[in-house]
Design a protein around this nucleic acid. Structure first.
Lengths: 192, 192
DNA sequence: TCGATAGCTAAGCAATTGCTTATTTTTAAA
DNA sequence: TTTAAAAATAAGCAATTGCTTAGCTATCGA
């Protein structure tokens, strides 16, 4: 008996994610979301309850999004050090194309909100844990391939590399290309 | 003939800085600034023009603030690698005491606003340049002391260490103590 | 003592904020 | 064909936003 939804929830959620990515949490108004998501405010509230919950869903959507895009090469079953190197060496090109201007939604949110809101903080931690586990798998594959010593502390390495990723997410927004290159060129020296 | 100011401009500016540090740019209202700075809105606007200019001044104040506090040990004329090591090893203690909860005002702002506003972006770059130069001086002193090779690329090292600082500013807000320790323990291995 | 200057307070401005209410429209089983 | 359910629209809610205006008060050289 009920009427059909005129929109796809996942589709409008991705639109919302893009708006939050562009403007940050506080600077994103519900009117702007309404416009960009292409659905009425009432529909937003009936589908996502309130702005904060929509934001948390957007953060989760972002995690799914980067899995299929940015980090896809590192999530291949057999991704190794070589792939991580390629990933890092691609960053200067991405800066030139303007792809990195808005940085990482999660790192941006860590700056803007960080641990202040527990529900948001929880998803930030989920995200960073996902990145760390991704890196650990890459390192583990590299051990298997004999590129890294079997004695290597992979947990330590992956936490360190998570830090490198964070610094690049901040850095690509404001540092010079040379500065980014310097960070990248130092990143993997100790991974062995 | 004119009346005296009832407040000290630098004093109320530091109060403003603290408010922005606590809440971020967008989430800080002029009413809250009024309350915390202890002066009337009109006085705020007549002294600082508008919210954004007050914020830019607060960023500059923050740079002066960390010179006298957080980074004071690294700004000693003869600061060397040993001091940088001490600085890093102090971070876990600071996390425990809650000192790092709000992170770094500049890194937070890089996340929230980044390059979107040119006047703000300019001061972000000023800040990062200050940090880089501070690190470069420490490294240079360490070369003089024979702790680092004379062939070392200090510009590269200091850019890399700037990245480490950024990752710690993000990290101390949401990562575990172990994760921070892992980043710290890897940070200086290549500096030689 | 006066008067010009600039500081102060407090009230108020239009615009925008997140969210809700009242109403209409579409759906498909009964 | 009717009807109950839910989805849509659009108008509107109180509260808050950044900023300004109007009027009062303190200062100190003349």
């Amino acid at each position: 008996m009920p009427r059909h939804k005129a929109y796809d929830k996942q589709e409008v959620l991705e639109k919302a994610m893009q708006v939050f990515w562009d403007h940050g949490y506080e600077a994103t108004s519900v009117r702007l979301l309404e416009k960009e998501m292409g659905i009425n405010q009432f529909s937003i509230y009936s589908a996502f309850d309130n702005k904060k919950k929509l934001f948390v869903e957007s953060l989760k959507k972002y995690r799914a999004y980067v899995k299929n895009n940015r980090f896809h090469p590192l999530l291949k079953e057999d991704a190794r050090l070589k792939d991580l190197k390629e990933f890092l060496n691609n960053i200067p090109r991405q800066i030139k194309s303007g792809e990195t201007k808005r940085g990482c939604l999660v790192v941006n949110t860590t700056g803007e909100i960080g641990g202040k809101d527990p529900e948001i903080a929880k998803e930030l931690k989920n995200y960073y844990n996902f990145i760390k586990e991704m890196l650990r798998k890459v390192l583990w594959n590299s051990v298997e391939a004999g590129e890294i010593s079997e004695e290597a502390d992979l947990e330590k390495y992956s936490n360190y590399l998570l830090g490198v990723m964070q610094s690049l997410s901040v850095g690509t927004k404001v540092l010079t290309e040379k500065q980014i290159n310097d960070i990248i060129s130092m990143a993997l020296i100790n991974i062995k």
